[in-house]
């Protein structure tokens, strides 16, 4: 009996059976996943830069160890995700090459600058909050290695958001200047965070296929709405104002209404014209280039040690 590969693949997905690296999969599924996972991995790696900016200037040791641990987690998350991407047939060097050449994208939020300490609070609260909304459903994504990586990521991510919110809370309860700093950070990070969910659903042409393959579980607009709904109460506890005059509860919808998003800004940042695109890419590329001699030395050392062991074996 001739079994249609594509049909039995889809049946597995419909039955919530995970796809593993050596299973048959449509080429388009593999390519779409590679793009999605590598983009996510790159975002974790580039995402370390805006925060690294404040590690040495953290206001006290408690804040410094927390921020260091958070940035270290992000390196780890990048590594889990690169490994998952490699199971789809691309090498690590190829993945990095796409980041360095600008061919691969990363989350546009990291192209905004971190101007004050309060930005560490706003990033943890809003940027990580938005990331968690996106990531939790991915723990059930149809591709096994990706789902397993996401379970690990999500477990670690919730401390990131809580540490950020705690920073905002401390500033909000502090002096007038500190409260103003927190409000300023919220003003600058709110809209870029709302944009993190991507284009509107009617402008997201690949979503339907991704939903069918279960590599996307909820639509961009649904997740964005959920994020806005929970953020309003969180801002109230802080005594801060979300910078949107049209934000109001809509009884009929059971959700908050909000202003139209500035998609021109969104597209500009994606196109490489955000405030820090060039600076971020330059930092990543120079770290890679300046580390080359270290990587080479490690290989040379490993080869030398291996030879020594071989010689000993022969002598014995």
């Amino acid at each position: 009996m001739e079994i249609n590969l594509e049909e039995s693949f889809q049946k597995k997905i419909d039955d919530e059976i995970r796809i593993e690296p050596r299973d048959w999969m449509p080429e388009k599924y593999r390519k779409t996943l590679l793009r999605q996972i590598s983009q996510h991995a790159h975002s974790e790696i580039v995402g370390m830069l805006p925060e690294a900016n404040w590690i040495t200037r953290a206001p006290n040791l408690r804040r410094k160890v927390a921020l260091l641990a958070k940035v270290q987690d992000e390196a780890g998350h990048g590594l889990y995700l690169y490994s998952a991407a490699e199971t789809l047939g691309m090498t690590r060097d190829e993945l990095l090459e796409e980041l360095h050449s600008g061919k691969a994208k990363y989350s546009s939020i990291f192209n905004y600058p971190t101007l004050s300490w309060a930005d560490m609070g706003a990033i943890g609260w809003l940027v990580d909050g938005a990331a968690i909304m996106n990531q939790v459903p991915l723990c059930r994504v149809s591709y096994g290695p990706y789902a397993r990586a996401m379970v690990r990521v999500c477990k670690e991510e919730s401390f990131h958001q809580r540490q950020g919110y705690e920073i905002m809370l401390t500033l909000s309860n502090g002096s007038e200047e500190q409260k103003a700093m927190a409000q300023d950070a919220l003003n600058r990070w709110w809209w870029p965070s709302v944009m993190m969910f991507g284009p509107n659903d009617d402008n997201s042409p690949n979503s339907a296929q991704s939903m069918k393959w279960k590599i996307k579980r909820f639509s961009n607009d649904d997740l964005r709405q959920k994020f806005i709904d929970v953020s309003v109460a969180q801002a109230e506890i802080l005594g801060l104002t979300i910078p949107d005059n049209n934000l109001k509860w809509n009884e009929a919808r059971g959700h908050y209404d909000f202003s139209t998003i500035d998609w021109i800004e969104f597209n500009e940042v994606i196109a490489g014209n955000g405030p820090c695109n060039k600076q971020r890419l330059k930092a990543i590329v120079s770290a890679w280039q300046n580390g080359e001699w270290v990587r080479d030395a490690a290989v040379a050392y490993a080869e030398k040690q291996a030879k020594k062991t071989d010689n000993k074996t022969i002598a014995a």
């Binding site: 590594l79 490994s83 990587r295």
Partner: peptide, 8 residues
């Protein structure tokens, strides 16, 4: 638990 790259 997963994989990683290392020289030795």
């Amino acid at each position: 638990v997963g994989s990683l790259h290392a020289a030795d």
